[in-house]
Amino acid sequence: MPLKNIYELYKTMERENTMLSFKGVVTPDLLSSVLQIMESKLGALEKSLRTRKKVYNVLVECLQNLYHHNEDTNTNKDQDLDSLFSKSALLMIAKQDDYYEVKTGNYIDRDKAKSLEQKIIEINKLNKEELREMYKSVLNHGQLSNKGTAGLGLIDIARKSGNKLEYAFLPIDDKFSFFCLNVKIN
């Protein structure tokens, strides 16, 4: 990479008002560090307790989605390049004038992408009250997986953000898509 690209990278992040960005494998330690940094940044920057908590909550769920997604790819034992590369994720948090953005990007199996997209489409159809009902229904009737996931993450993210989930699935090759998620929090 030419050295001047470092400056380009800096300017891009500056233009996007990036508070924090990370690319790599999401581990429990990384998760703790990011949350700690963001908690102190939000504490200094954001006066509204409600907004602070919303952003923090969305961040927790997004990070844990990335983390549990890694666990999935861990289970297939082949340590080939594909599986290593598929574990790496992108996380960015930005503050715009009147909202925050949490952006994530990660590789996902193409078959899993289909069901995930379907789930997001369903969630995006619902208004605030309907989301609340869906959350209660999954909470009451759903089962925890052995990873401790409840199937509630995206519903909760949509509820807390108060906006539609912005997403894209970019086709990469016959095995993977790249899943982009942008959550705006007012």
Partner: peptide
């Protein structure tokens, strides 16, 4: 103060 969705079920 906060709980995640994994905890909500527990």
């Amino acid at each position: 103060e906060y709980f995640n969705t994994s905890s909500s079920k527990c």
